[in-house]
């Protein structure tokens, strides 16, 4: 589903991704943890083709995402959903318009779009907010709408960038519940990037620790405390 080999990305002489390899199989749920600024979000953007790597390869659904023409990339991206850290809702559009936005690039009929948006709003429990603007929503509500928008085109892969960061424990749990529910209902392949260990336990089958631009060998969530490097991170040593 996702295959990364020998990936390198440097920002201002700082190598944030350093000869990184990763393979994610269809339907798998992985989490990448690590301290803030270690390159997790950059890795997610490289997977989505939003950033160009210095070297190395990223294959998503069998296609080299950084070597595609614009139409090919657009087609591939319709199969990848991203929940951004800030939700990244478009300020000038209502909740309804934000969720309907991905259909803009398609030639879907208006009544089909309306039906789908209603379904998605119901799925994330925000049906009554369709006419609201992003600035009228709380952080958790924005994430829900961001999630609904990411799911609009029924992606095969979901990428979550710090889905619970900045939310209180109750809202974090509700977002985690949604991610678990989506994984079960639609069996999408998911990559969760987070520095919140509590999120990992509920949303991932395998956990990778990112350190100095590389991924350490994965562990299962319940094994985090058994592995010295992971234990150091969890206890705030990294």
């Amino acid at each position: 589903m996702i295959r990364i080999s020998n990936l390198v990305k440097t920002y201002r002489a700082r190598r944030v991704v350093d000869h990184l390899d990763l393979e994610v199989k269809a339907g798998e749920k992985i989490a990448i943890i690590g301290p803030s600024g270690c390159g997790k979000s950059t890795l997610l953007r490289l997977i989505a083709g939003l950033h160009q790597p210095d070297s190395g390869h990223v294959h998503v659904l069998g296609q080299p995402i950084h070597h595609l023409s614009m139409p090919e990339l657009t087609s591939l991206r319709s199969q990848i959903g991203i929940l951004f850290q800030s939700a990244a809702l478009f300020d000038s559009l209502t909740v309804y318009e934000n969720i309907a936005f991905p259909f803009d690039a398609m030639s879907a009929m208006p009544h089909v779009i309306k039906k789908r948006v209603k379904e998605l709003l119901a799925l994330v429990g925000m049906s009554e907010f369709d006419g609201s603007y992003p600035h009228e929503l709380s952080g958790g509500q924005k994430k829900r709408i961001g999630l609904a928008r990411a799911l609009a085109l029924q992606p095969k892969i979901m990428l979550y960038d710090e889905p619970t960061t900045g939310l209180d424990p109750i809202l974090s749990t509700s977002i985690e519940d949604l991610i678990v529910h989506l994984n079960q209902q639609f069996s999408v392949t998911s990559v969760v990037v987070t520095h919140q260990v509590s999120t990992v336990f509920r949303t991932a089958d395998r956990v990778f620790l990112m350190h100095e631009g590389r991924l350490l060998p994965p562990v299962q969530p319940h094994q985090i405390d058994d592995h010295p490097d992971y234990r150091v991170f969890v206890r705030g040593g990294l």
Partner: peptide, 11 residues
């Protein structure tokens, strides 16, 4: 606020 990246991600 990542809206430009969101635009790209949405094709």
């Amino acid at each position: 606020t990542e809206q430009i990246e969101a635009l790209e991600a949405l094709g």
